[in-house]
Each structure stands twice: as C-alpha cells, then as structure tokens.
Amino acid sequence: MAESAATPAESRPPGTAGTAVEKPPAGEETREWEPVIVGFLCNWCSYAGADSAGTARMVHPTNVRIVRVPCSGRVNPRFVLRAFQRGADGVLISGCHPGDCHYSTGNFYARRRLLLLKGYLEYLGIDPRRFRTHWVSASEGQKWAEVVRSMCEEVKALGPAPSLGNLV
C-alpha cells in the first residue's frame, strides 16, 4: 500500500503536530516539494567522497543533510529512527567499503546491525526504500553523486514520510 502523505492534523493526538526539520514550505506554486534526507557519513571515506564530488563540481541534489560520524560503526540504530521521527523523508548511511574501514572492522559490525535495522524498520512500518546504506570511498565522488541522485528520486516519488507523532 502506498504511504499516505503526512498524517492529517485532526487524526493526530493533541500537541503532536509538526516536525523538527524545517522543510521547504510545501504547496508553494513556485517550488516543488523536496525531500529531506539525513545522511550519516563516515569521516574517512564517504565524507571525503562527498567532498570530492563537491570540489569536482559534480551536479547532484542538495537534499542530503550530512552528519559526519567517525565510522559507519558509530551509527546507533536509534539515530536513524530519531531522524525519521524528526521529519526526515529518507536516511542514508555511507561508509568505507567492507575491508577498507579506517578502524579495519567497524563497518563489518555496522553491516550486521544495519541489516537488522533495515528489516526492523520495515517491520515497524517504515518503507525500506527510505533507508539505504552505501559504501563510498574517498575517491568515489562520482558514485556519491549517483547515490544521492538515485535516492533522491526514489524518495521524491514516495512523497513526504508519514508523521510519527512528536510532541512538537
């Protein structure tokens, strides 16, 4: 079943309207709705990869709000759920290729955890297409641009993520 757009205000419990990530105002004729994607990028590979995409002036969407983390192994699954609760339409985790982690095994551990998370998010009712993990090295600016572009397109097609009921 397709996800409905944001929960209608009247069906929300009192005091739970709204989300924290200030989104571009929806419904303005001059601007299309743009998804907000929170990206957790490891410092050593993916953050550098995103950086190289930038310095090479590759054109790619600007929807990803980047959170730099020391390693993909640093990403606590709660960060991901919290991002969705705070209004993210998608969450992207990106780290070094398996075998290339700066801390040698961080992303191997992360992979197990995030595999479970992926299945669990779907179990909780969050469309798995809104949550992705990729391995992007420091030299893969091109791949980064491609990952962002494809994820953006996919999430845009899905529309705004349903509200999960914050107090503010």
Binding site: T19, A20, E22, N166, V168
Partner: peptide, 9 residues
C-alpha cells in the same frame, strides 16, 4: 521540555 527546530513544549 521537548524542543526542536525553534519550538518546544
């Protein structure tokens, strides 16, 4: 308090 994005309760 529960606060985020410039507002809170």
């Amino acid at each position: 308090d529960c606060a985020a994005g410039g507002r809170g309760v």
